[in-house]
């Protein structure tokens, strides 16, 4: 068990598992998060695997005619989306550190990740 992480039970867990730009999945996941926020349904927003690339700061996709995904994720707080989790090992496996990320997140280990999923009713894994 990792003992430091306090998590709240949420009925929806969103797992963002793909890098931005290469597919539409990152944006699709974010749009679901925004919609849930507008309807005041709290959720767990979990970044796993290549999904952690979504959170890298300094993204500048203008030349590939895309909107900056990291800059969009910076607005989560304004939407009242507070349960933002990043899988610690996914960062380590990609040689990334927490201070390269665009917003405040909670790092979680496998154990907490499994717990978050097990406490949800709906899991959307994009």
């Amino acid at each position: 068990m990792d003992n430091q992480t306090q998590t709240k039970k949420q009925s929806i867990s969103l797992i963002a598992r793909r890098a931005p730009y290469g597919s539409g999945a990152a944006r699709q996941t974010l749009d679901i998060a925004f919609a849930a926020a507008v309807f005041e349904r709290p959720l767990n927003y979990i970044f796993l695997g290549d999904g952690v690339y979504q959170l890298l700061s300094k993204q500048d996709p203008e030349a590939i005619q895309n909107k900056p995904h990291g800059a969009a994720l910076e607005t989560l707080e304004l939407y009242g989306i507070d349960e933002v989790y990043v899988h610690r090992n996914s960062l380590i496996q990609r040689a990334l550190s927490e201070d390269e990320l665009v917003c405040k997140v909670t790092l979680i280990d496998d154990c907490t990740l499994k717990e978050l999923v097990a406490e949800s009713i709906h899991v959307i894994n994009l």
Partner: peptide, 20 residues
């Protein structure tokens, strides 16, 4: 319709399955 209709349906269902 909008994603709100997905969120709403999630509150009224027992199981969610995704295919992609």
């Amino acid at each position: 319709g909008g994603l709100g209709q997905l969120i709403e349906a999630l509150s009224n269902c027992d199981r969610t399955l995704s295919f992609g």
